Amino acid sequence: MPDATSPSLLQYGIQLPVQSQSTLYREPWETTAGPDELARAARAADRLGYAYIACCDHVAIPARLADAMGTTWYDPVSTLGWLAALTTRTLLLSHVAVAPLRHPLLSAKQYATLDLLSGGRLLLGVGAGHVPEEFEALGVDFHQRGPVLDETLTALSAALTDEYPSHPGPRFPFSGLAVSPRPAQRPRPPIWVGGSSPRAVRRAALLGEGWLSQGDSLEQLPAQLGLIASVREQAGRSGPFAVNAIPPALYVGEPGWETGRRALTGKPERLAASLRRYASLGVTHLQLRPRSRSLDEYLDQLEAVATDVLPLV
């Protein structure tokens, strides 16, 4: 089952601003921001001790979804590789790479290189994807994305673990091919699996070292963690297992502007008490997103969360 953790062991990361601009969460200032703002946010997270910085993944957005999802989605390998050179300690998380869109040998090559160049800071987060047109454009069967992801995960694991990997699967058979350079982490970088459907949660429990919740509430998390514990126990899997949850957006203090009904606002003690509830369930990582009206306010909030709120948790 997921390892229980005390509040003092709870770790915190951020989904970087700018690099993904879904209208569900982007701030207005992000629409005109670019590499400079992204770099400042990543450097601040690195300096303030956030455990990871995360980058999303979509190759192309169909017109029917553009209003809701936006059309700006930076490539995770390029973005995290660039930010690796601008940071020193924060981990680099793909949250999530749509793994079925790419051959696992290609993904292994890209992410092994990223892990090596970053000094072993990769967290490989993968998911099944949800945009049919994206799959169609790239010649991948959308309706088979679940089975494809299952095989991709086993193939990725093999290619990231061994220089001469072997994978006999029906979709991606390979052997006798060297895949180098090798990642810095041994035996390979950890793989966290995203998704909140029962099938996705089972996949994470069986094939990953962690689960990336897609916004499950405090009320929903116990059932999800119970499913993970049950599947891992039945499969004989043991050892550390990361559970990453996404609480509502935060604002330290009284904003004086409309932050949305779900945002957590107020004094550090109030915010800390809310975050502490996640730790009590067995969550090991929280992905935080401060509300803001400008990059400077975002950076101020990032620091306030790190210095005023998190020590209380």
Rank of each mutant, 00 (worst) to 15 (best):
P2K: 04
S8V: 11
L9Y: 08
L10M: 08
Q11W: 01
Q15T: 10
Q15K: 04
S20C: 11
T23E: 13
T23Y: 04
T31K: 07
E37A: 14
L38W: 07
A44D: 11
A45Q: 10
A45V: 05
D46K: 07
L48A: 12
Y50C: 11
Y52N: 12
I53E: 02
I53A: 10
I53T: 10
I53W: 12
C55S: 15
C55T: 15
H58G: 05
A60E: 05
I61F: 04
A63Y: 04
R64V: 15
A66C: 02
D67T: 09
A68R: 15
G70R: 05
T72R: 15
W73I: 14
V77W: 14
S78I: 14
S78D: 13
T79H: 06
L80A: 05
G81E: 04
L83D: 09
T88S: 12
L92K: 02
L93D: 00
S94A: 13
H95F: 11
A97R: 09
A97Y: 03
L106M: 14
S107P: 00
S107L: 15
L116F: 08
L117Q: 09
L123H: 03
L123M: 14
G127V: 03
A128Y: 00
H130I: 10
P132D: 09
E133Y: 11
E134R: 05
E134F: 05
F135T: 01
G139Q: 08
D141F: 08
G146Q: 08
L149G: 01
D150W: 01
L153Q: 02
S157T: 14
D162K: 10
P170W: 04
P170Y: 01
F172D: 00
P173E: 00
G176K: 07
V179L: 14
S180R: 14
P183V: 10
Q185C: 04
R186T: 13
P187M: 09
P187S: 06
I191A: 01
I191H: 05
I191Y: 00
I191W: 03
G195P: 00
G195Y: 01
A200W: 01
V201C: 02
R202Q: 15
A204I: 04
A205T: 03
E209A: 04
G210Q: 10
L212M: 12
Q214I: 09
Q214T: 12
Q214W: 13
G215Y: 07
D216Y: 01
Q220N: 07
L221F: 03
A223K: 06
S230R: 15
V231M: 03
R232Q: 12
R232W: 07
R237Y: 05
G239I: 00
G239C: 01
A242E: 13
A245T: 08
I246F: 11
P247Y: 07
P247H: 08
Y251P: 00
E254S: 12
G256C: 01
G260I: 09
A263Y: 08
G266T: 05
G266Q: 03
P268D: 07
L271Y: 09
R276G: 15
R277W: 06
R277G: 08
L281R: 10
L286K: 06
P290Y: 11
S292R: 06
S294N: 08
Y298K: 01
E303R: 12
E303S: 11
V309M: 09
P311N: 08
P311T: 07
P311I: 06
L312R: 14
